[in-house]
Amino acid sequence: MTSAIGVDAARPKGALARLLQRKLAVFGLILIAVVLAGAVFAPLLASFPPDMQNFDGLTIQGAPMPPGGAYPMGTDLLGRDLFSRILYGARTSLIIGVVANGLALLIGTLVGITAGYFRGWIGAVLMRFTDLMMAFPALLLAICLAAIFSPSLWIVALVIALVSWVQTARVIYTETTSLAERDFIAAERTLGAGTGRILFRHILPHLIPTIIVWGTLGISTTVLLEATLSFLGVGVQPPTPSWGNIIFENQTYFQSAPWLVFIPGAAIILLALAFNLVGDALRDVLDPTQRGRA
């Protein structure tokens, strides 16, 4: 029923060029670029050091200042400039969101694809281990791990990766088992292709949509997981700001100073949205069967 609709005329060359044709993807890229620039140039952009407690940063009653004047985003309960903390916090949150999440995706994909393709005892061992990890409370595990290693930003990223790869592994496993049964994989095997070639050249590209979806979903959850760890004292150590720990430090003031929660919350949502938009477009751009559809 579906005859191929001619799309030859409008077929741009590279994947990047096709990505840039999509308005939403460009919007997402701009958002990411803004956050990145903010993180990198934080010392130049911030009007105060992030951990400086300003004398005039609190009202006479000792409450945080609302946005306006010298403090574009207001101040927190210690009179620190929220704008500066958000800028510096972007460094932490980007590292957690990108590095921890990326590492989690990598582990999850490798475990899932190996277990899904080989099945048998390799698959059984890997997946039972994954189930075990899933059943174990992630937060408890993270606290244990963080307590063993002395907390630093990179250790926190590693800990978060080690607890959040399991969902990805499960999903990738299921998809790989069904992909491995497809005829084109059988065809590839009859051509004499080796396991590595089948796994990475023929199965992996089909998993990209899933990986992208889980990757973008993971950004916000990992950023928040870091915040939880910080709150419990095993995450990024104060006074180093991260978007997550700004929310947690100030959540008791939610009624009287809502901006202290809303602003970092909005930042996390925007970052997740930006990655989501780019990821969504990337998935379509990388799929040849979607080519020519806007």
Partner: peptide
Amino acid sequence: RRIQIVFQDPMAALNPR
């Protein structure tokens, strides 16, 4: 190299990517 197979459903047997 001596023996090859052609499957029933060509769409399924060709990697769409």
